[in-house]
Amino acid sequence: MARRYGQRVQLIIALKSALTTLETEIVYAQNGLPDIFKRLAQTESELLASFFVATHQALADGKRHLLDVWSELFDRLPLKRYIGLREKEALMDLARSLGQYDRFSEQKRIQLTRFELEEAYREAKQNHERYGKMARTMGVLFGLLIMILFW
């Protein structure tokens, strides 16, 4: 349980970093979205790498909507275990419009998503500090209880 709170924080940090790369690739390099996902898959942490590989593959396989692709991927383990509602909704909003506008409109949308991820990060960190410690303590106490019961 405590690990889950910590992983959510790590995931949001990784997502923010991926969004910065995405913004740079769109605004300055003007690379195509499938190529960007392929590149992100090579540079991001294991958890996000598999997410971007799957996104790239789905688009190559002819999926019509990025929203459908991400919606399906967010419901898959292990991402499903760690992603929070707030960051999930922010990314789904982005998926609704990504690749459909000119680069400055795309930039604005990515920045908005990053801002929402920032809020999600604060919330996740707070939860991690508040409940993570509690969950760890509960874990220890539960372990002691088991030991006492079997002693």
Binding site: Q30, G32, L33, P34, G99, Q100, R103, S105
Partner: peptide
């Protein structure tokens, strides 16, 4: 446009 309308300025 392969999800990349922004590349077609």
């Amino acid at each position: 446009v392969d999800f990349s309308l922004y590349t077609l300025e």
